[in-house]
């Protein structure tokens, strides 16, 4: 296992540090965990593509030495999907924020999940629109304060993993920037998973979420994650009252009985070329 210093030296593009994230922002921890996972899985740089949307976390793609794209707000999944269709051999890792993925790109999320296309989606969930200065997202907890919810949000938030699983995602997992070894572990499993995998990385935004919600000290946001994240095995034994305000971490669902989309498409090509259902122009 390489040290974190070696991983940074190997996988960061030259002269990209310090990164642009705010002091105490958890995005660097998530990106570090991703590099650990990619390295531990033994993936060659040339065989990895990292495609992101728009937002604070989506800037991550520009820092790392793979085939990378920082695309449009909400559209990381369609572009990843097209790339995976053209190059099924690539490990396509999609990075998206909570707003990017669940609001403006929400339709793409449910359909990528439904198709079970072999992408690894990492959702950096900092519960807020950070880049634009602290507006509420569909993953902002109800009752939180945001610049566009000065009287507190009245909108319930999504459980994005339950949403993805209901839509057909065959691998869902969650970890936090406090639970780094678990985050690395679920990222590795998500990368290895053949169909569509989604990993929610709960991360802190001290600047734009914390300051508005009495969690301004970065370390306090990690302490909050420590107190509220519960391992799946323990979570399963808790009653509803014990679960109140907490969330499960680890691999939450996994199934291997469904065919991955690009593999299923290969059968379409076979069928078309067999002549049986092929018609002339």
């Amino acid at each position: 296992m390489k040290s974190m210093e070696e991983l940074v030296n190997e996988y960061f593009r030259p002269n990209r540090l310090p990164h642009l994230w705010c002091p105490g922002c958890g995005n660097g921890v998530v990106l570090g965990a991703l590099l650990k996972a990619i390295d531990a899985e033994g993936l060659a740089k040339d065989d990895v593509a990292v495609i992101s949307g728009i937002g604070c976390s989506s800037r991550a793609s520009g820092y790392v030495d793979f085939n990378t794209g920082n695309t449009l707000h909400g559209r990381a999944l369609p572009i990843s999907t097209g790339l995976k269709m053209a190059r099924p051999d690539l490990n396509v890792i999609t990075l998206s924020g909570d707003g990017d993925c669940s609001a403006i790109g929400g339709n793409h999320l449910i359909h990528a999940a439904r198709r079970n296309i072999g992408l690894t989606l990492v959702v950096f969930n900092n519960s807020i629109y950070g880049m634009t200065g602290g507006q509420y997202s569909p993953l902002t907890p109800q009752g939180a304060r945001a610049t566009t919810a000065p009287y507190l949000t009245i909108e319930p938030s999504f459980d994005i993993l339950a949403l993805a699983e209901a839509a057909g995602a065959t691998f869902t997992a969650r970890a936090t920037t406090y639970h780094v070894p678990i985050l690395v572990d679920v990222l590795r499993k998500g990368i290895r998973h053949e169909g569509f995998s989604i990993i929610e990385a709960v991360t802190g935004c001290p600047t734009n979420f914390g300051r508005q919600n009495k969690l301004a000290a970065p370390a306090m946001m990690m302490e909050w994650q420590k107190e509220h994240g519960v391992m799946k095995a323990a979570w399963d034994k808790m009653d509803p009252a014990q679960r109140e305000g907490k969330f499960p971490i680890g691999v939450l669902s996994e199934r291997t009985d469904l065919k991955e989309y690009t593999k299923a498409y290969d059968e379409i090509i076979e069928r078309a070329q067999s002549g049986k259902e092929a018609a002339s122009a």
Binding site: G74, I79, G82, A86, R271, Q273, A281
Partner: peptide, 29 residues
């Protein structure tokens, strides 16, 4: 009908944005 006959791929996407999004992704590939 025609793309799979020549080894190509067709996707009916969830919306117009994904339609051209997948096109750009495939072009990058």
């Amino acid at each position: 009908k025609r793309l799979p006959q020549v080894g190509g791929k067709f996707m009916q996407t969830e919306d117009e944005l994904a339609g051209i999004g997948t096109v750009l992704g495939a072009s990058l590939g």
